[in-house]
């Protein structure tokens, strides 16, 4: 039995929607899981109760609301609350698709670089447009840190500009790589269990206990990573937006 840790990332078209130029636009397993994430978030936020003393589901909805709201307030200030719907959507979308992806046989939307890159570029473009619209040319003071001696200013500016334009790269690759690596590791260790059991018989069944335990531990770790990466993505979005709101460092 061969372990194929990459198979889980395959995009399988379910049916074709249409064509744009030479590209076939298909409804894929990835599309399905994106809609699953949207549906889960919608159900959570819209069907939880409106009680004065919240139940469990309502608590989850309110906790996520207040968690994102306090993250924005602490990193981007009260003005950052303009972007509350955007950051909440990003956080919940990533968090729910990461968590859904841990379910065996489920597809992980955020394990594809194109998805995370699109989300990171959305943030990058939002920061750029809002920053220029709000601050005009003062926005580009972001690249000119105050209190730097004149002779190294060109170098510092170069680094600042480079790091600014590399933000979407690190922003997207961080999430993508974390999800990808976690799922590959899970698959490899889970594959060991089956492989040992099939190839070595009774000895393999006993030997399989170790990788099984590791798989359980890794699943717990992946649950943490799933939440943490969504949080990291959201807080980085807040920090980038803070640059657009207050470009003066």
């Amino acid at each position: 039995m061969k372990i194929d840790p990459i198979h889980q990332f395959n995009i399988e078209p379910l049916f074709t929607i249409g064509h744009i130029g030479n590209h076939t636009i298909a409804f894929t397993n990835s599309s399905l899981y994106m809609l699953v994430a949207v549906a889960v978030i919608t159900l959570l936020m819209l069907t939880s109760g409106k009680q004065l003393v919240p139940g469990r589901l309502q608590s989850v909805a309110e906790l996520s609301y207040e968690f994102v709201a306090s993250t924005i307030r602490s990193t981007a200030g009260a003005e950052g609350m303009k972007f509350f719907p955007l950051i909440f959507s990003l956080f919940m979308f990533i968090c729910v698709s990461n968590l859904v992806g841990i379910i065996p046989y489920a597809f992980t939307v955020s394990s594809h670089i194109i998805v995370t890159a699109a989300l990171a570029l959305l943030v990058f473009v939002t920061v750029l447009i809002y920053g220029v619209a709000k601050n005009g040319l003062k926005f580009f003071k972001l690249f000119v840190p105050s209190g730097v001696p004149g002779y190294i200013l060109p170098l510092v500016m170069f680094i600042e500009i480079l790091s600014f334009f590399l933000r979407p790269v690190s922003h997207s690759v961080r999430l993508f790589a974390n999800m990808l690596a976690g799922h590959i590791a899970l698959k490899v260790f889970a594959g060991f269990v089956a492989m040992l059991g099939v190839s070595l018989g009774a000895v393999g069944w006993i030997g399989g206990v170790m990788p099984l335990a590791l798989t359980v531990a890794l699943t717990a770790l992946e649950l943490l990573v799933a939440f943490l990466q969504a949080y990291v993505f959201a807080i980085l979005t807040c920090i980038y937006l803070n640059d657009a709101i207050h470009p003066g460092h």
Binding site: I20, T24, I25, S31, M34, A37, M45, V109, A118
Partner: peptide, 24 residues
Amino acid sequence: TFASQLVSLAIAFVALYLIVSRVA
């Protein structure tokens, strides 16, 4: 597979954004 993913992501995310900002 990029085009398919981008289109479905756009649809899903815009739908989510509208639901979140208007209702949720």
